[in-house]
Design a protein around this nucleic acid. Structure first.
Length: 198
DNA sequence: TAGCTGATTGACT
DNA sequence: GTCAATCAGCTAA
């Protein structure tokens, strides 16, 4: 547990789908509001550049400063006026892409998460959705553009070798380019946000 | 300036 | 199964 260094920036400087797959099992750590909360990433989705109609890089120019940056930063946006979603910027400089963190399994600070969410700590509803996990970890627009390789919000590699089946399927919850198979999740994990659509 | 959209969730029938 | 909540940022004019 002690002082596992966060994933290096070069981890993110690869194609978004590769980063999305390798992010499964990694641990998202937040040190916000004076508490430490962490969870293993169980579900991700990859978004590409302008050629991906569902990506914010394609239709949201205000995100370009991050998308075209060096990678390894957080991109937080508000959906439907009230929910937050957390992305990790991926891809080398000049090749925009990002990875949406859709679900994680709490490993640390569970009571803080339950407090923020207002649901019992043993419920999967704590973090089994993109907006749920941001609320559980206390992530808001303040964390937009945060450096994931250092600071209050980081992602660490798995403590042990990963032993689980990775499933791949079409992305969910979006209205454009839904046929691309860019969603990755841990098969059989109860924290995955939606029933597997293979 | 006005109008529209959305990578969601939770409450309700 | 349906539907409202709520707002930053885009587009049209």
């Amino acid at each position: 547990m002690a002082a596992t260094p966060p994933l290096p920036r070069r981890f993110y400087q690869r194609p978004a789908p590769d980063v999305a797959r390798d992010l499964l099992g990694c641990v998202l750590v937040s040190r916000l509001d004076g508490t430490v909360s962490a969870g293993q990433i169980m579900e991700t989705e990859a978004y590409l550049g302008p050629e991906d109609a569902a990506s914010h890089a394609a239709f949201r120019p205000s995100s370009h400063r991050l998308f075209y940056g060096p990678g390894g930063h957080a991109y937080v946006f508000r959906a439907y006026g009230l929910h937050f979603c957390l992305n990790a910027i991926a891809g080398a400089r000049g090749t925009p892409g990002c990875v949406l963190i859709r679900a994680l399994e709490p490993t640390q600070g569970v009571s803080s998460m339950a407090l923020r969410r207002g649901v019992p700590a043993h419920k999967v509803a704590l973090t089994n959705g993109p907006a749920k996990l941001t609320q559980a970890l206390g992530i808001t627009l303040r964390e937009n553009a945060a450096d994931l390789t250092r600071g209050r919000l980081t992602i660490r590699p798995p403590g042990a070798p990963r032993e689980f089946a990775v499933a791949v399927g079409p992305r969910v919850g979006i209205t454009r380019a839904t046929k691309r198979r860019l969603r990755f999740w841990v098969r059989g994990n109860p924290y995955v946000s939606r029933p597997s659509q293979t």
